[in-house]
Amino acid sequence: MSVQFELRCPVSADLAFIRDLVRVCGRYAGLTGERLDHLVLAVNEAVTNVLDHGGAAGSVTARGTQDGIIVEILDFAGRLSAGHLGGARVDPTGAHGFGLWVIQRLCDGVSLEQTGLGSLLSLHMNHDPATSVRHLGRAGRERQPAH
């Protein structure tokens, strides 16, 4: 018998604590090794984005699925748009941040929904990379912006 387990915590500047929580949840959901590291980094980037560019307040929820885990990062201020996601680029010169690009590169699926509570970024990570919903190329070969 498996026990349903869900993480719910506020966005805070204690990024190391949030990373630890996500690592525990990811491991519980069956992720290991590289994929667990990718999930932790992606959530770290999403939370940092709320702190830096969103309203600095929000929540992180995580729950296991049949294929892996979904982590949702809610920005109460609702400042994250599809344009930000689609326009995210890696910039090897270091002139700009590229957290949003990293998130999309590392996760198996990323979706954004504007809700009554704010902008909700959902990150999907599967146990098995073969079930990835999409693949992005290496730096410089990412998909075109959505707008």
């Binding site: 990373r19 980094l41 770290n44 940092t48 270091g94 590229f98 957290g99």
Partner: peptide
Amino acid sequence: TFLDSSGLHVLLSCAR
């Protein structure tokens, strides 16, 4: 043990 994009940004700024 952990590097995020802001840390990577520091390395790249130094490279510039």
